[in-house]
Amino acid sequence: MAVSGFQSAGEGTGQGLVDSHCHLDYLAKDGDLAPVVERAEAAGVSTLVTICTKISEFDEIRSIAERFPSVFCSVGVHPHEAGTEGQENAERLLSLAAHDKVVGIGETGLDYYYEHSPREAQQVSFRAHISASRESRLPLIVHARDADDDTVAILQEEYAKGPFPGVIHCFTAGPELARAALEIGFYISLAGIVTFKSAQALRDTVAEVPLDRLLVETDSPYLAPVPKRGKTNEPANVAYTAAALAALRGLPEDDFAAMTTENFFRLFTRAQPR
Rank of each mutant, 00 (worst) to 15 (best):
S95N: 01
L96H: 03
A97E: 03
A97W: 00
V103P: 04
G104H: 01
G106I: 01
T108Q: 07
T108H: 09
L110G: 06
D111V: 01
Y112C: 05
Y112M: 08
Y112K: 10
Y113G: 04
S117V: 11
P118K: 13
R119M: 04
A121E: 14
Q122G: 06
Q122E: 10
Q122M: 11
Q123S: 12
S125C: 15
F126H: 04
F126P: 00
R127T: 03
R127M: 05
A128N: 11
H129A: 05
H129N: 06
H129D: 09
H129S: 06
S131R: 15
S131Q: 14
S133Y: 02
R134V: 03
S136W: 11
R137E: 15
R137F: 08
I141A: 01
V142C: 14
A144N: 15
R145E: 12
D146R: 13
D146I: 07
D146G: 09
A147N: 09
D148V: 09
D148Y: 03
D149Y: 07
T151W: 03
A153D: 13
I154G: 05
I154F: 07
L155C: 11
L155V: 06
E157L: 05
E157T: 13
Y159G: 02
Y159R: 07
Y159N: 11
K161V: 00
G162S: 08
G162C: 07
P163C: 05
F164I: 04
P165S: 14
P165F: 06
G166K: 06
I168D: 06
I168W: 05
C170Y: 10
F171C: 04
F171G: 02
A173Q: 14
G174W: 02
G174M: 03
G174T: 03
P175R: 14
L177P: 06
A178R: 10
A180L: 02
L182T: 13
F186Q: 11
F186T: 14
A191K: 06
I193K: 12
V194F: 09
T195A: 10
T195N: 12
F196Y: 15
F196G: 08
K197L: 07
K197V: 05
S198T: 13
S198Y: 03
Q200E: 15
Q200R: 11
Q200T: 13
Q200F: 00
R203F: 01
D204I: 00
V206K: 01
E208D: 11
P210F: 12
